[in-house]
């Protein structure tokens, strides 16, 4: 009897090997938290050294720092020439241009593809189209940049009466738009598939055509998922670096994102400017070096906010269907 009891009370679950395994796996998972903390610390530290008010306190020479107000409010961004100027509005306007330009391409096309896949496509077409669309997302961004520079820009140059420069924002927006279509499509399609079939049946029962049901029942019922996909895709567009760096040039200028003509000129968004600073002539402790971190922090905060908003929208309205 006692042998059974002692068998029963043997602590196999707490043996060293079990403990070791558990802690190893926990450590792996905890690394992700370390990464986030690392990103925040690195960005914040670098940004602190960039701004005058905090940088001087950390031992930076005042000439190597920039005041917060000139960063936020000025419109000239010239890190490569003397005198160095660091007005965020210039690369920021380019980022907004990139966002709007790629939105014009990706949002309608992506939604159209999602509606087609969800409501109209036969199983065979779907099994072909879905992987095919994913290929769009699998092409490396440098390759898209190459496409924009070498094929799309010359084509545009011929089509547009006044011509476009070698570097311009239109080509960049086109390829980035194409690149993010799969994100819009797959998330929107999931949202539309999640709309219960009984709603479609109700629509048909009331004498609506398929077009009516798709547009007045399915899409509105999936709108939160669609909105969430839009925001996610645009946050990806904002974070896109290489395609714009190759296709749109290296100079940041303040432009009006709502002015279509502006898109035919070169411009350089926040991400591409970070690349520029890294490949340029930077001394390790100068303003140009720490500008990368300030830009990085701006970018990180914006994309994080967009991702969080997207998640909130989709989770808050997802509860509607049980």
């Amino acid at each position: 009897m006692s042998s059974i009891t002692s068998d029963l009370t043997t602590r196999t679950a707490k043996s060293p090997r079990e403990r070791l395994a558990r802690w190893f796996f926990f450590a792996c998972a905890a690394i992700s938290i370390v990464v986030t903390i690392g990103i925040v610390v690195v960005l914040v530290l670098g940004a602190l050294k960039f701004f005058r008010s905090t940088g001087v306190a950390l031992g930076m020479a005042p000439g190597d720092t920039v005041s917060l107000s000139s960063y936020l409010l000025e419109g000239k961004w010239t890190p490569g020439s003397e005198p160095q100027q660091f007005g965020l509005l210039a690369p920021l306007s380019a980022t907004v241009m990139l966002m709007l330009g790629s939105a014009i391409i990706a949002l309608p096309l992506g939604l159209a593809a999602a509606i087609y896949l969800s409501e109209y496509a036969s199983d065979r077409m779907r099994s072909f189209l879905k992987p095919a669309l994913e290929i769009l997302a699998g092409v490396p961004t440098v390759v898209y940049g190459f496409f924009a520079l070498v094929y799309i820009t010359p084509l545009l140059d011929q089509l547009v009466p006044l011509g476009v420069g070698t570097f311009n924002m239109v080509s960049a927006c086109i390829v980035v738009g194409i690149m993010i279509i799969p994100m819009v499509t797959s998330i929107s399609e999931d949202a539309m598939n999640a709309v219960p079939d009984s709603l479609r049946q109700a629509g048909y029962g009331l004498g609506a055509t398929k077009f009516d049901v798709s547009t007045t029942v399915v899409v509105p019922s999936a709108i939160s998922g669609i909105a969430s996909s839009y925001i996610l895709a645009l946050s990806r567009a904002i974070g896109e670096t290489m395609a714009v760096a190759i296709a749109a040039g290296s100079q940041s200028t303040v432009m009006n994102p709502l002015n279509p003509v502006a898109y035919f000129s070169p411009n350089s968004p926040i991400t591409a400017q970070m690349i520029q600073l890294a490949t340029g002539d930077i001394s390790a402790q100068g303003a140009a070096y720490h500008a990368m971190f300030a830009l990085g922090l701006t970018l990180f905060v914006v994309t994080l906010a967009m991702n969080v908003v997207s998640e909130l929208i989709s989770s808050r309205y997802r509860e509607v269907y049980r």
């Binding site: 990103i39 904002i238 974070g239 896109e240 991400t271």
Partner: peptide, 10 residues
Amino acid sequence: GVPSVVYGLL
């Protein structure tokens, strides 16, 4: 969802 440049900065 963090852009790749930021990982480079890290």
